[in-house]
């Protein structure tokens, strides 16, 4: 058997994990701190099972219907909770995810209660899976380029500034919900089609943690980060078996260190390194000298200007949060 065949299960898990991670990453990239994609994933798993088992639908229509339904559900959720900010929005979406789990337990025959649904066999092939993945990844990658990419950056980092250059921030935020619903539900539907069984235990709080760790360790600002995260956390448990019984602890330490020390993840480190190289190359080419000369030409007091420049180097421009904090 080839490497591909022996590792097929892990490859499938990487793909669904990647889409799940993207369903959290896309809203994060737009400054919407929402975990609703995980709820859509849970919905996708069950909806896929129901459509295939109870309605004898084929694989592709199942995925299509489930994905759209997931997107709409999260969009409606977004319409309600969009005005919440930061942490409260995050927690509202966590509550949404957990409610999906409770509904699954109490759904009677439709969801199969605590035992869930099993035996979901369809005509789904790896060809389908790869095609969907490629289409999604191309679309996501394009959203990071050009005008759309710049505008998403603005909406995330400074919504006020974004609206002052004419960006409809509200629409972007709603789109973030919709897309995360689409991605989450697609991931869920594909998961049930390759795994063939689902129980309420599979869609708990730990799934939020898993999706979040993938993009925190991989990198939250680019699809490349999500790919790194999905690969690392799908294959890490396998690799860590060498370490033996403490693999979970090692896993925990990696996540904690990444969350604290490198909030932009592995891909973020790469971007930083690339910028540093660019800076050095610029110095060598003398472009910087020209720029500094231009800077000097326009300043009357050279020393002062240079000192100011040095001060400013490395200190990122801070935009005040403007919050008065909580009251007591």
């Amino acid at each position: 058997m080839s490497w591909y065949d022996t590792n097929l299960v892990l490859i499938q898990a990487t793909i669904t994990g990647l889409l799940l991670a993207l369903s959290i990453q896309i809203p994060l990239r737009m400054g919407v701190f929402s975990f609703a994609g995980v709820g859509a994933y849970g919905f996708g798993c069950y909806a896929g099972a129901v459509l295939v088992l109870d309605h004898q639908m084929a694989a592709l229509p199942t995925i299509l219907v489930t994905t759209l339904a997931g997107g709409l559900i999260v969009l409606v959720l977004g319409l309600f909770i969009n005005r919440l900010n930061g942490l409260t929005l995050a927690m509202a979406t966590v509550a949404f995810d957990l409610i999906i789990g409770v509904v699954a337990v109490n759904g009677g025959e439709t969801t199969g209660g605590a035992t869930g649904r099993y035996g979901v066999i369809s005509d789904f092939t790896m060809g389908h899976m790869w095609t969907i993945l490629v289409v999604v990844m191309v679309l996501v990658a394009l959203s990071e380029r050009g005008k759309l990419g710049r505008r998403i950056d603005a909406v995330r980092d400074d919504p006020e500034l974004a609206s002052s250059v004419g960006i409809r921030v509200y629409n972007y935020r709603l789109a973030a919900f919709f897309v995360s619903g689409l991605l989450g539900a697609a991931a869920g539907a594909m998961n049930i089609l390759v795994r063939s069984a689902i129980t309420p235990l599979d869609i708990g709080f730990h799934l939020i943690v898993l999706a979040l760790t993938m993009i925190i360790v991989g990198g939250s600002l680019s699809w490349k980060g999500a790919v790194i995260g999905a690969v690392v956390f799908t294959w890490l448990p396998d690799v860590l078996q060498v370490i033996g019984e403490w693999q979970e602890l090692v896993y925990g330490v990696i996540v904690a260190v990444a969350a604290v020390l490198m909030p932009r993840g592995i891909y973020g480190l790469y971007v930083e390194a690339k910028r540093a190289v660019l800076r050095r190359r610029r110095t060598r080419r003398g472009a910087v000298r020209a720029a500094v000369a231009a800077e000097r030409a326009r300043t009357t007091d050279d020393d002062e200007a240079l000192a100011e420049m040095e001060d400013d180097l490395g200190s990122p421009s801070v935009t005040p949060g403007g919050s008065m904090g909580a009251n007591l």
Binding site: E248, L249, G252, S323
Partner: peptide, 24 residues
Amino acid sequence: TNKKTAEMQILIGGIGVAIIPLAI
């Protein structure tokens, strides 16, 4: 760098750190 990202990172950092005692 700013309050909004700090809030978010503290939430994520808390989730990350929590994995260690849980794993043990």
